[in-house]
C-alpha cells in the first residue's frame, strides 16, 4: 500500500485492516501519535486525514490510501500547526503531555476549517480526553492560536 504521510510517500506491506495508528507507530517509527484506548474514546491518536481530525486507532490503513495524512511529526511545517504549537507553549498547556499530540492535531484541524471559532465551536471540536484535566488551558490555547 502507498501512503502519503506528511507530504512523503511511504510503502507498507501490511494487513489491510491494520489501524493506521499501528502503521505509523510500529511500521514507520512515528511515535508522536499515541495509543490511549484503541476504541476512539480518548483521541490521543488523532491525525489529520485530508484535513479532518481522525482517530487513527480505528481507521483501517486501506481506507486512507490516496489520502493526505498529516501527523504531529509535521506540525512545525504547517502554518496553522505552528500557531497552535506556539499557543500551546504560551499557555503552558501540557502536563503529562501524553494526550497533547492528539489535542494539537484536533486544534489544528479546527482552525484550518474555522479560523475564528466561537467558544461553542471550540467545545464542539476539542473533545479529546485529558486525564490531567488541562481542558481550560486547551481551550485558552485554541483561542490564543485563533488570534495569532
Amino acid at each position: 500500500m502507498d501512503l502519503t504521510i506528511n507530504g512523503s510517500q511511504h510503502q507498507v506491506d501490511i494487513e489491510a485492516d491494520t489501524p493506521l495508528l499501528w502503521v505509523l507507530r510500529d511500521e514507520l517509527g512515528m511515535t508522536g501519535t499515541k495509543y490511549g484506548c484503541g476504541l476512539a474514546q480518548c483521541g490521543a491518536c488523532t491525525v489529520l486525514i485530508d484535513g479532518q481530525a481522525t482517530r487513527s486507532c480505528v481507521t483501517p490503513v486501506e481506507s486512507v490510501v490516496g489520502a493526505s495524512i498529516m501527523t504531529i511529526e509535521a506540525i512545525a511545517e504547517d502554518p496553522v500547526g505552528r500557531k497552535v504549537v506556539e499557543a500551546w507553549v504560551s499557555n503552558q498547556v501540557p502536563q503529562c503531555g501524553y494526550c497533547q499530540s492528539g489535542q494539537v492535531m484536533a486544534a489544528t484541524a479546527l482552525l484550518k476549517q474555522n479560523p475564528q471559532p466561537s467558544d461553542e465551536d471550540i467545545a464542539g471540536a476539542m473533545v479529546n480526553l485529558c486525564r490531567c484535566g488541562t481542558y481550560n488551558a486547551i481551550a485558552a490555547g485554541v483561542r490564543h492560536a485563533s488570534q495569532a
Binding site: 511515535t31 504531529i72 504549537v85 503531555g97
Partner: peptide
C-alpha cells in the same frame, strides 16, 4: 516548564 514544547510537538 522545560518540557512543554516537546510535549506539544510529539
Amino acid at each position: 516548564r522545560l518540557d512543554v514544547r516537546d510535549k506539544s510537538t510529539g
